[in-house]
Amino acid sequence: MKKTGIIIEFKNGAVKDASYGMIACARNGGGDSLYAFVINEDAQVHKEALEAHGIHNIVDICLPEIGTCKESGSQAGWNPVIWSQAVMEAMQIHGISELFGLTTPMGRELLPRIAAKLDAPLVMDCIEVNCSEGIVQNYLYSGKTLATIKVKGDIRIYGIRPNVIEPAPAPVSASMFTVTYSNAHKNEPDCGKITLLESRPGDNSDGDLLEADVIISGGRGMQNGENFKLLHQCARYLGAKVGASRVAVDLGWVPYSMQVGQTGEKVSPRVYIACGLSGSVQHFAGMKMSGMIIAINNNPNAAIMANCDYFIEGDLFDVIPALTEALSKAK
């Protein structure tokens, strides 16, 4: 029987929606025995939620020697070097041949560290996985092509793009296991050569673009950083996160963590609202996978106006405040 391990991510004490989507992906892909890896969280608390999504086994991974300092925004006791070793231990103990994680900042640290140590194949940013065939799909060449990739190896590792796969509840009952980090890695060649000194959490108010359902982004047309508050006000009523084009970041208006595009975040929200943003090829590389794209721009010839679902030709400084007002009344 094929055993599939899934690294579960949490946010504010709850399982992230993107993790449920990843479970659905692992299940569709033919995973017949799913193991949820819960690291440094109280696994019992999340048992019911994970069972509801079809998890057969919950592995509580305990890292006793790393305190329990709880920082806002990041999971307790975050340390990618130790966490990746702990996941490898859990994989070995339970005979896991397939590992799933999200292509998030956490996944980008854990999955390649594990793949490198196990000399196992890894594909990041998958939008579809067929476990039984070892075939995945992802976007290559800056989102301009869709690739089908054959993954060969005794152990195969998949990084899943958050938000592209809908959660699909499928209730089962799960068995509980505990794996305690044993420090069995002290003989590894890089042991003791890398130490995490400090983990400074980011600011949640401007982050999380990757997993946002709705994004409202501003470009050069915003004119300055101060004006982004118009987008933040509107975002509050839309339950949206605020993004930006590279120009807005390069001009110092907003932080790099808000950048959507080729060299920023690659996002897949249900709705993407682009304000005063021309829509360069590089910007499209980061958002063309959005469900619906709405453009607001006073230039009818902007590239984005020709490749969106809806557009409003008009001044964003009229449209956005009016939209915010309409939304505030609708509440």
């Binding site: 000399d119 290559l140 092509t145 990739i149 060969k152 490749n307 679902d309």
Partner: peptide, 18 residues
């Protein structure tokens, strides 16, 4: 022994009708 290999590549235009 392990590998990843592209077996098919398609253009993804993501073209929309505004």
């Amino acid at each position: 022994q392990a590998s990843t290999e592209i077996i098919e590549l398609k253009l993804f235009a993501g073209k929309r009708t505004p």
